[in-house]
Design a protein around this nucleic acid. Structure first.
Lengths: 193, 193
DNA sequence: CAATTCCGGTGACCTTTGTCATGTCATTAA
DNA sequence: TTAATGACATGACAAAGGTCACCGGAATTG
């Protein structure tokens, strides 16, 4: 049922023919993920590419002090996975955890490669996804080295209202690279303006 | 002459046939860039994808206070360009400047798209480039939100010795997101260990 | 429903990093 | 060769952000 959401999603980029749709229906499989469950844990190889149909995820790294650093979130119509581990088949240093009960569609690496070979249209579509992700991360790096934490917080609020409104401040602080206490200070200052 | 470097470079990824090589020779053109010259300036649309044959470049943004923030460097065998401007044909907010006399090979967007359509092997090769770039930026974001400036400086030194040894500390500081004065403090501390 | 966990805020104190002015030396330009 | 510019370091002072302990309330779990 949810597979049609994914087909719709691809159709927004490039119209799919029946053979392409059949391939999608055949190779993607649906999974229910409960809150606090993982679809990737550090040390494991990331063998699946994941499309979020419903719910919210965070991909994070735990540093040597045990502190968690959120690299990215993913909500409906977003893809998530550790592409480094996925393509190089090496153990991931990242974790992907459901922040609420979620539904995803997943495809194995070998099936995704078949998809690209047998249906080159997907090669193009996925390259656009990767490019868009790269652009986002470049902007994020620039922002991290040129803006204050307050500016980054306001920008996050503006840019991702659908995420901002459903995750806790602790998670936002981790994503921005500040402590929850400091974020609280920022919020207090902003509420006075 | 330098075009053969590029062909060699591609050959490391996937063996090229004669037709593919002919296309490369035909569509890429060489350019000499003097130190302090730009191959992209903010406000212009980035219409060229650039491969560095010799030399060193930096891609940076100037913030509203006039401060320059280095997003990335590029030396021999690296690609550089503002992919956001390149693909969406919108004015760039970035500048790409030669840090020393350099030689590059460049291809226009429409030729690159022809390359992908007529020679799908390049679609795959460039997707690998984009994925590798994305992985680098993800790691950089993680590092920026979880490490001290000192740790980032040491990592930069280890990871990019070929860049580290040919650019000034002012440029490194800008890339790391710290002031030159603070970097000087870090270096002093390190030289005492 | 009770116990536990998590979230959000607070405050004292500390560390990291920034600002600004200054001086010296190296490099570049005229 | 000289003048100008840029790089690098320094130090006093300031700002941004972190640490730690604590408290109250909301959400989650059993």
């Amino acid at each position: 049922m949810h597979i049609e959401s994914l087909i719709s999603y691809f159709d927004n980029y490039l119209r799919l023919d029946e053979e392409e749709k059949a391939f999608i229906r055949k190779k993607f499989f649906e999974k229910q993920v409960k809150r606090r469950q993982f679809i990737l844990q550090e040390g494991d190889v990331c063998r699946l590419n994941t499309f979020v149909v419903a719910g919210c995820f965070r991909m994070y790294m735990v540093d040597e002090k045990g502190k968690e650093h959120n690299l990215q979130f993913a909500i409906e119509n977003w893809w998530i996975g550790d592409i480094d581990s996925f393509h190089k088949e090496k153990p991931s240093k990242l974790n992907i955890e459901a922040m609420e009960n979620s539904i995803v569609l997943q495809i194995r690496k070998e099936d995704q490669l078949r998809l690209f070979v047998e249906h080159p249209k997907f090669n193009r579509i996925f390259r656009v996804f990767t490019e868009n992700a790269l652009i986002s991360f470049q902007n994020r790096v620039l922002q991290n080295i040129s803006s204050t934490a307050e500016e980054r917080y306001l920008d996050f609020m503006d840019r991702y209202p659908n995420i901002f409104n459903r995750i806790s401040n602790v998670q936002i602080a981790s994503y921005l690279g500040v402590t929850p206490e400091f974020l609280s200070t920022i919020r207090k200052k902003l509420s006075r303006s």
